[in-house]
Amino acid sequence: MDVDDEDAIHQAWMDQALIMAEEALKAREVPVGCIFVRDGQVIARARNRTNELKNATRHAELEAIDEIMANPILTPVVTSQILAGTTLYVTVEPCMMCASALRQVGIERVFFGCENDRFGGCGSVLGVNSSLPHPVHRPFVAKAGYRREEAIMLLRRFYITENTNAPQPKSKATRVLKTEIAPPKRPASRT
């Protein structure tokens, strides 16, 4: 299988993660969605629930990991690498909390859409996935840029409708949804 074919497969999986992010947007959550794939099957899908649960740590990845952990078929035996052989597709780069969690459960690899300059744990702020040495947990590969534009547009749609922090501009007409997307600041792939 050549690289293009492989990329097409990853993008198709990412489309399913985007559906979860859309669901988050509809629920007025920061639109981040993810799916976990093992042996060609989706074993968990989740989205951000920080507002609903009033807990800023309930990110999509942790929601999904809890779902997997709660399922004895998916997690028959708890080892140090529960998610070995499992791939995560997530619309936004996992934050440092989630990247650390993913490494602690032995995720195989991660594909994500857009970078997270504030909290990104797969290279944007800190390479929790691999460059940070850990005495026990093996590093994992994280690749950026899968359905990146779609992921960014979802975030923009959220911030344009949900920006309740700031007083609203006088007219809705001034609230323009920008569609141009700047290229990533770093190379799209990192390990």
Partner: peptide, 12 residues
């Protein structure tokens, strides 16, 4: 750990 430290940061 890193996970918990970042969770604390998220929680301000």
């Amino acid at each position: 750990c890193i996970m918990c430290s970042m969770a604390l940061l998220h929680s301000r």
